[in-house]
Structure formats: C-alpha cells, structure tokens
Design a protein around this nucleic acid. Structure first.
Lengths: 147, 147
DNA sequence: TCTGGTTAGTCAGATTGCCTGACTTCTATT
DNA sequence: AATAGAAGTCAGGCAATCTGACTAACCAGA
C-alpha cells in the first residue's frame, strides 16, 4: 500500500517494460495478429533477413535451443515462419519469415517507433537519448554472471 | 545475429531490468537468502510495516489474489512471513514479515541502493534523474488497458 | 433480525515460457 | 573409417502466472 518514497529502479524498470510491451502487443490483435505473444519477440528480434538457424537464434536471445524451438514451432503454425533445409549443413534448418511474418515484423517495428516518438514528445530528444543511455549503461554495468 | 542499428526501447528495457534483477537477486544466496526468487519481490515490495492483507498485496502488485497467495505460502514456508488473524475482520489474515523477513527486506533495499549508486557513478546525478524520469513517464504514458 | 450482496480467502485445474537430460543425425577432423 | 562435436528433437519438469467455482464472514437495509 505504501510505495517507499523513491520507487526502486527495479520497480520502475519492470513496470516501464510491462507498460510498453502491453502497449505494443496489445495493439497486435487490431492489426490482424491476434495470436502473437510477447515471448515471440525473442525470436522476431533476432531473426536475420535471409533466415537464421535455431541455434543462432537461441544464442542471440540467451535461451536454450529447446525453448527457441518451441517459439519457432508456434510461429510456424501461425504461418509467420517457415523452415528450409540449410544447403550448407545437412543437420540444420534455416528459419525465415514468410510474407505474413515480414508484415508482422514491420508492424512491430512501426508500433515500437510510434511508441518511442510518443514518448519523445514528452521527454524531448535529449530526454529519450538520456533514457537510452541510462538503459544501455545499466545493461553494460550489470553483466550476467557477476556479483 | 544482427541487432538492428538502434536497439528498440523494449529490448533495452527488458534487458536492463533483467541485468539489474540478476545483479540484486544473484547476490541473495551469498547474503544468506538462497531460496528467494524474483517473483517474491511482488510481495516484498508492497508489504506494509504493520502487515498487509493478501487482497491488498494482490491489488498493489496488479495480480490475482491466488497468485499472491502462492507467493505468500512460499515466503511463509521459508520463515520470512507470518499470518495473524486480522482483529478487524474475521475473514482476513494480516501478513507480516518475521524478523528474518525484515532482514531480507533490508538486504534487498541495501542491494538496490548499492546498484543504483554504482550506476550513479557512471551516469551522474543528472543521468540517474533523467533515467528515472524517463521510466516514470513511460509508465505514465502507456497505462494498462489502452491502445 | 433475517436476508442478500460484497469481500477475503481457498481449492482445483490450466497455461505459458522457460529449463535440463538424453538422444539421433549429420559434419568435420584425424 | 572413427570419433568428437554441433544441430536439432523428444520427454519431462517447474515457476509464475491465470480463471472458475467455492466457503466464510461482514454489512446494509427491510
């Protein structure tokens, strides 16, 4: 009931992420992508234009390949992703966006940009830059696997 | 493999939160609280000194009371929390921190403060203020349940 | 004072988003 | 060839939520 006078940075970060994600992903149903969930972004954010391997995507997102496989299966079932054999390695498949998947990707980019420019109207260009810088430094200063 | 030139704000927010949370919660085992997980913060952040009701905590954290009950059971089993009947309402229980729970709470506050001051050394007081302001505005500008 | 609506919490069950371990298949190196 | 390692699959598990249905208790009004 009583949030301590200055809310902790962790609290702010968590809620800011939740608010922004809700804003962006909450609009997807209206844009024709009702089945896309937040978790899918772990794949969508990292997929290369020419296609990517499952293992690459898992490494880029920092998750187990089994977890990425689950997301890939999902997006494939939704018609956003297709898998073709990698001609350079018989074990591997290349995952790439279908036409509809590219549309989804572009929609997400556009919604993100719209949200950011809305925020920029509030904070100004310097404010946004400071926010980005602060976040980037937070990531850099607290690397995974350190005390 | 190729993070697009400016990483999206969502990406930054998610990773900054993850990095900070990992930093803080990763130190808890060394501080004598090996069983505390991130989810517990949803309860710990909102509990009042004199004790809080389950329903209050759930509302403050924005989650279902059943979910908060799960966290409360957990913290109770770990000896951090105890429940006493609310003298003012026979249906309700007051949840409050035990001595060990208060120690945990103080440890979390200290670790948070330490992390923030480390970041302040990097960003300066103005940088931290700008970061906080940006996050606060993000939360305010993208309220739950809106397009 | 009974009664009906509301609130506090519990019970049961489901889902999402991850995880680990064990395995197969293929590649590449020796 | 033989074998080590990498790509991906299969099976299973767990954490952190959710919804729906319920009981017990409180409270306001007839």
């Amino acid at each position: 009931m009583n949030e301590p006078s200055p809310p902790s940075l962790g609290f702010l970060l968590r809620n800011a992420y939740a608010a922004l994600a809700e804003h962006v992903y909450g609009q997807l149903p209206d844009r024709g992508f009702p089945e896309i969930r937040r978790a899918h972004s772990s794949l969508l954010r990292h997929i290369a234009p020419g296609g990517s391997r499952l293992t690459e995507l898992a490494a880029a997102a920092g998750m187990a390949k089994q977890s990425m496989a689950y997301l890939a299966d999902d997006l494939t079932a939704l018609g956003m992703l297709e898998a073709v054999p990698d001609p350079r390695d018989g074990r591997a498949r290349l995952l790439r966006l279908t036409a509809r998947g590219r549309k989804l990707y572009e929609t997400l980019v556009a919604l993100s940009a719209e949200a950011e420019s809305r925020l920029e109207a509030e904070l100004g260009a310097t404010g946004i830059a400071a926010l980005r810088h602060g976040l980037t430094q937070t990531i850099a200063r607290f690397p995974p696997g350190l005390g």
